[in-house]
Nucleic acid binder design. Sequence first.
RNA 1: GGUGGAAUGGCCGAGUGGUCAAUGGCAACAGACUGUAAAUCUGUCGACGGGAGUCUACCAUGGUUCAAAUCCAUGUUCCACCA
Length: 378
Amino acid sequence: MFEFNIIAECSRTGARAGELTTPHGIINTPVFMPVGTLATVKSMSSRELEEINSQIILGNTYHLYLRPGSEIISKAGGLHKFMNWSRPILTDSGGFQVFSLAKLQKITDENVICRSHIDGSLLIMSPEWSMDMQRVLASDIAMCFDQCSELPATHEKLEEALNRTTLWAERSKEYFLSHNDVNNQALFGIIQGGTCDDLRERSAHEIINIGFPGYAIGGLSVGESHEAMYHTLDILNNIMPPNKPRYLMGVGYPLNIIEGIARGVDMFDCVMPTRNGRNGTLFISSGRVNIKNKNNAEDFTSLDPECDCYTCRNFTRAYLRHLSMCGEILGARLCSWHNLRFTVRIAEQAREAIIAGKFPEFLERFNAKFHDNPQTQN
RNA sequence: GGUGGAAUGGCCGAGUGGUCAAUGGCAACAGACUGUAAAUCUGUCGACGGGAGUCUACCAUGGUUCAAAUCCAUGUUCCACCA
């Protein structure tokens, strides 16, 4: 049921185009996966997600465990049916919440004792708990329960998280193999190690030795510089098995995606398109736009004439600014809609370029056009 | 006509002699956001100056006082109640 085939490779960079077969369909890589933490990509319906060509979306173990809970998801017949999404789903293990909800918990090798961010009630997260929950969610791709460190961090702290991640990867896999539906769900391993070369290498070797159908790079985009991120990707690009999908977790900034693809990454996910969209920062081919800025008040042009999304084809910047200024739901929707399509399309365009043998040119063109500073573009 | 009350920075609204260029909130302006505790958070928000600071400000005018958004007088406008 799971297969990954590389159909084209860039001769000058690490970029590759592939096909990842899952129970709910084939995913063309590179791919950007919108995040749907609570069984919804915030403000977007499944029909709209299909329209922007989302091939796969994420769900979150921790959040769905708290609400609506495993029983209801189970009764619904799994996450696909519950949210009426028929394409592939990847579930995050709850590992990231060990990081993002760090103040609410106590971590040991055995497990994570955590307080619910909703009502403060106690819950215990562990690799086994995560596999159980992801089995109920019935995602196509499950993730190992890991520990993500914030950066900057000391070598010692990173090593501790790395060791625990390896330990938990072993337990995740062992439990997964004996409890989950291995014909309909794949378990990916997660490499940690921050931005320390030696730790990254060690973590990669340890996780790869355990053996998974796909490997994720965790612990990046958590405070390090872009250069440090790229350097770590370069190192991993030389270690990770070429015939397995590689997933850079939590990355969605357009330049990071492009540079990630150039370093052999096949899959990305990020809340950035939706969160930034709701907050008024939009990504377009020339860079970033803060749609709430006054200079958009009387701008009756399209947000991005080069974009094929519903928002850009039908509404003006002035209207988007108006909706965003007023806090209107439609503003959040249209802005998320555009950002999602824009981000999904980056991966699509990269794929086309890789297949056409023109990825380096695409990379160069994108970098030349996309300005980092929101002030510098129109 | 009578009696009582109120007028504060774009708006609402604290403040009742010095610690007040004046709490808050909103609006506005800008920034942040990367496996979602986020339709959130942060900063700025009288003028000039890099800053120390200077100036102009709490309806108007006049006064009391070393010192007034705060006290007094008069006026203006608004509100409530009574006729």
